[in-house]
Simulated scan of single mutants.
Amino acid sequence: MPGESDSPVLTIRMRWMFGWEQHRPGGCRCLCRMFHNIPGTGVCLAAAEPGLLIRVVTATQSDGPLTVCRDCYTALAPLAD
């Protein structure tokens, strides 16, 4: 499992930029729950972990690096560039 010091920033390419909610309180707020049809808020409310970072990019925009929880980081790793 990657540790804080050896985890790369994952670059996730999307067709459209979603409004990122991470800067609100309540967890890592990754939107991957929406894509996996997990019932609830549509965003992850687990605590974000320092050092587990993603950058979301589209053809015209970039957001990040953003801190996510370990489960979201692990789920997103196969999708990263």
Rank of each mutant, 00 (worst) to 15 (best):
F35K: 10
A77Q: 14
L52P: 04
V9N: 09
L79G: 05
A80L: 02
G64K: 05
R33M: 04
M1R: 03
G64N: 04
D63T: 06
D81N: 03
F18Q: 10
L45I: 15
T11Q: 06
R29T: 04
P50F: 15
W16K: 08
N37G: 03
A75R: 05
I38D: 08
I38M: 14
C30K: 05
R55K: 11
G3N: 10
R24V: 03
V57P: 01
G26W: 04
I12S: 10
Q61A: 08
F18L: 09
P78M: 00
L53E: 09
H36E: 14
L52R: 15
P2W: 15
G26Y: 02
R15T: 13
P8E: 15
P78G: 01
W20D: 06
A77P: 02
W16F: 05
Y73R: 10
L79Q: 12
C32D: 11
A80W: 01
L52M: 14
H36T: 12
I54F: 02
G26R: 03
L66A: 11
R70V: 04
G26H: 00
M34N: 12
S7M: 06
G3K: 15
L76F: 06
R24P: 01
Q22K: 07
E4Q: 08
T11N: 06
L10H: 07
G19E: 14
I12E: 04
V68H: 13
C28T: 14
P65E: 02
D6I: 12
R33G: 02
G64E: 03
W16I: 07
L52V: 07
R13G: 03
L66Q: 09
A75N: 02
L76G: 01
M17L: 15
L10F: 07
Q61H: 05
C28F: 13
M14T: 09
E21V: 06
T67G: 14
V57M: 06
F18A: 12
C72T: 05
A59F: 00
D63I: 08
G19P: 09
P25G: 11
R70W: 10
S5E: 13
I38E: 15
G51Q: 13
R13E: 09
E49R: 03
G27K: 15
G27I: 14
T74P: 01
C28M: 14
L10M: 06
P78S: 01
R13P: 01
I54G: 02
P2V: 10
V56R: 01
P78Q: 00
L79Y: 13
G27S: 13
M17Q: 05
Y73S: 05
G19S: 13
A48G: 12
A47H: 00
G19Q: 13
A77R: 11
V56F: 01
A75M: 07
D71G: 00
E4S: 14
R70D: 13
P25L: 15
E4I: 06
E49F: 00
N37E: 10
A75K: 05
T60P: 00
H23L: 04
L66C: 08
V68C: 13
A48L: 00
R29I: 07
V9L: 05
P39H: 10
P39V: 05
V68P: 03
